[in-house]
Each structure stands twice: as structure tokens, then as C-alpha cells.
Design a binder for these strands. Structure first.
Lengths: 104, 104
DNA sequence: TCTTGATATAGTTATATCACTATATTCCTA
DNA sequence: TAGGAATATAGTGATATAACTATATCAAGA
């Protein structure tokens, strides 16, 4: 038997799938949106998110779309409003990382 | 007193500082490097990292530099070898996120 | 000092992302 | 059904990142 360290690395397939998702979250405004939604605890409209993030509507919508495309958020239309919610709980862990390790 | 929800959001300054660091980690090969270093538990040379990651030397060196620039890794030269170590423990949390939530 | 193994950097082209502006769509209500 | 509020998308130029190849630097030993 050859000497061989057992590494048990996360497989590349997973890394390749996960990396772009994290990458997309790792954007100041998108993090702010996610932070707002996570602390808010309830689905929020675009307008509410705009106010909390102090950014233009078009920009917010753009970012929401990116996050929705990555299945980080889900959207639900009710009348003329669209409510966004965090769909992926890993977001919470990532935010927790940031809160705890500002040194990051 | 006006009705006002206390949100306690992570401030933008922090988000702007942290986002690019996470962004840089969120790359398949760089995640693999970090995963390898974290499970290896000891400082590793470029060659060892190359082998573990099955990638060209120049590419690995490039990635190592990016991670070092962001202070995610530190490097220590010993003779003609350079040993890399994880400098930022938040990496471990991020990797943990990935391990637990492959659904991310 | 010449060579060789170990590591780092430069240069390049293709592609992705950013921020921003303008415009479109959707739905409600008068 | 026309207008307005809420939301989404298109288009654009500037900048950043990716992957890759070639080359440079550094240190040890013959």
C-alpha cells in the first residue's frame, strides 16, 4: 500500500457550481440587499429594498434579477408589487461570516 | 417618536471592504487551493499545491498571488521553497458553508 | 559560475461585469 | 381605457477577470 494522505477535498464539480453563486453575492450592494432581507425577516417589495439600500430602482431591480437567477432569492408577485425573499439559507451563514469576521 | 424598524445592517464600508475578498475566493481553483490548505493543516509549497489541484505552475502561482494580495494567504520563503498558509480564518467558515450547503 | 529545480511575473486576447440612462412592461384605479 | 405607480429590461462604454504562453527571478549545489 502506498503512502497516501487522505484529503477528502470538496470536489471540483461542487466548487464550479458554488463559486459563481458566491461570487455573485460578493458585491456590496447585493450583500446589503441580502442583509436587509435577512434581518427584515419578511418578504419585501422592490421599493422597500430601494429605500433600505438607498439605490436607484433600475439598479436594485438588476441586482435582484442576478440574485434570483442564481436562486439565492425568490420573487412572488402580488398585484403590482413583487415580494422578494431569501431562498438559500447559506446566505445567512455567509452574512454571519461577515458579521463575525470584519477582518475578513 | 416615529415608528421605525431597527435594522442594524452591516455598514456599507464593511461590505465594500469584504466583498472583493470573498469575490476573489469565489473561484473554483482558488477555492480548491484554500480547501487543500485548510485540510492539509500545514504550510504547503507551490509544487504540493500544484499536485493537489492538478493545475499548471504559472496558474497556481497567479492564484496564490491573488489570495496573498488579499491577505487570505501568507507566504514564507525557505530556501528555494515557498510555504503558503491560510491567514484568514474566515476562509474556514466559508469552506464550511460550502461543505454543508452543496445546494448553495 | 553554470545548471537546474522552484517560483513569480509579463503579456495577450476573449469574455464578464459595472454603473448608468433610457425605455418597456405590468397592474391597479379612476 | 388612460394614467400612474411599481417593477423589469435593453443598450452602452469603461473596466476587470479569465485562461494561457512565454519568460524571468531566485536559490542551491556541482
Amino acid at each position: 500500500m502506498l503512502k497516501q494522505k487522505q484529503h477528502n477535498l470538496i470536489d471540483m464539480e461542487t466548487l464550479e457550481r458554488v463559486a459563481p453563486v458566491i461570487r455573485n453575492m460578493a458585491h456590496p450592494l447585493r450583500l446589503r440587499i441580502l442583509d436587509f432581507l435577512s434581518t427584515s425577516g419578511e418578504p419585501c417589495t422592490v421599493t422597500k429594498i430601494m429605500e433600505a439600500c438607498e439605490a436607484e430602482q433600475a439598479i436594485i431591480s438588476q441586482q435582484l434579477r442576478i440574485l434570483k437567477d442564481q436562486r439565492v432569492l425568490t420573487a412572488k408577485r402580488e398585484g403590482s408589487f413583487v415580494y422578494y425573499t431569501i431562498a438559500d439559507k447559506s446566505v445567512l451563514m455567509l452574512l454571519e461570516c461577515i458579521r463575525q469576521h470584519h477582518t475578513l
